[in-house]
């Protein structure tokens, strides 16, 4: 990679380091990414595992069955109940986090009141979380979505992996429709082990399809979090003059008198947000809004602190 003389790649490399700023890093330094459900990882780590092992953390008793290791028989329990019970202990492991980045055309939108596009905002948010997760010796991978699954960067726990992730995110150019539902379903079939899946998208797609895809991920045991990135203009709709709004993903153009339709639009948009929030809650997923005009140093800590306050949410039944 060091011998790459392509100017575009040079720019991308230069920008890769700019996805993380010191202010955001210092703000996230005291935080950690908490999984919501037990996961399996390749090495021992700080997170609960779905496996029972021999760590110091007692988990539960279970009745002896032939073939069990008699070393774990709880003889005190046998003395009390005249029945054989085995002691089981919690196993601790690391986890794998997949950052799913929506690079559809709509993510390139940037209004006049925003400082960056939704995609840029999502890139920086994903980079910040990757940095945080890698710092905890957990593995982070990346997959981009634009109508289908795009580039896939395998997970790694190496700190240097962050640069690869950033470069991959910067290389992704916004184009095409979202196709979130199919992409999520495809991703669900590809991920063989339960992992943390964090989606960065505006979710401007068929909501039923998208929800079905997310449900597939949840059903396969993944800890899914949806960070919905929106532009402030999409929520506030601050337009005044009559405008022809051009669809960015094949939608029909709309000639609108904003002052007459603004309130109705806001109602529709808020209903959309409510719907997503409700569906995520029913699927025991986290859902948070990231407005591109709000600094990540403010919005990401809130997201992470919310996960810390409710660590059991989304635990498998």
């Amino acid at each position: 990679m060091t011998g790459d003389l392509n100017p575009a790649t040079q720019v991308a490399r230069t920008s890769a380091t700019s996805l993380l700023d010191s202010n955001l890093q210092s703000r996230l330094a005291g935080l950690s990414f908490q999984t919501r459900r037990p996961l399996e990882g390749p090495v021992t780590g700080r997170h609960r595992s779905r496996q029972r092992g021999f760590s110091a953390e007692f988990a539960e008793h279970r009745e002896y069955v032939p073939g069990d290791d008699v070393r774990y028989v709880d003889w005190k329990a046998y003395g009390r109940s005249d029945r054989y019970y085995l002691k089981e202990f919690e196993d601790e492991t690391n986890f794998t986090c997949w950052l799913v980045l929506d690079t559809s055309e709509s993510m390139s939108y940037r209004s006049g009141t925003a400082t960056e596009s939704k995609l840029d905002h999502a890139r920086r948010a994903a980079a910040a979380l990757a940095w945080l997760i890698l710092r905890g010796a957990d593995a982070v991978g990346l997959v981009t979505i634009a109508g289908k699954l795009g580039r896939l960067v395998p997970p790694s726990t190496q700190p240097s992996h962050l640069d690869q992730l950033n470069r991959a995110m910067l290389d992704a150019t916004p184009a095409g429709p979202s196709g979130l539902g199919a992409a999520f379903r495809d991703l669900a079939t590809r991920l063989t082990r339960p992992a943390v899946v964090i989606c960065f998208s505006d979710l401007f797609d068929d909501l039923n399809e998208t929800a079905a895809g997310l449900e597939q991920l949840a059903w396969r045991g993944h800890d899914v979090a949806v960070l919905q990135v929106i532009d402030p203009a999409e929520e506030d709709f601050p337009f005044e003059e009559p405008t022809r709004f051009l669809g960015m993903e094949g939608e029909a153009d709309q000639v609108v008198e904003p002052r007459a339709l603004a309130e109705a639009y806001r109602v529709e948009f808020r209903r959309f947000l409510d719907d997503i929030s409700s569906r995520c809650r029913s699927m025991r997923m986290d859902h948070a809004l990231l407005r591109s005009d709000v600094p990540l140093a403010t919005s990401l800590p809130r997201f992470l602190e919310a996960r810390l306050r409710h660590p059991a949410r989304g635990a498998a039944p």
Binding site: S106, M107, Y109, K118, D202, F204, D231, A233, E234, F239, E241, P242, T243, R244, F245, L246, G247, M248, E249, E251, A252, D253, Q254, V255, V256, E257, A260, L261, A264, Y265, V267, E268, F269, F272
Partner: peptide, 27 residues
């Protein structure tokens, strides 16, 4: 009208569809 790309056009379309009668009345 001035033209402007807008990512959330689908919601505009939905709002217009639902409120076209009201908007026409207001006009």
């Amino acid at each position: 009208h001035r033209a402007e790309p807008f990512a959330a056009n689908r919601f505009l379309a939905e709002a217009t569809r639902k409120h076209s009668r009201r908007l026409r009345f207001q006009h």
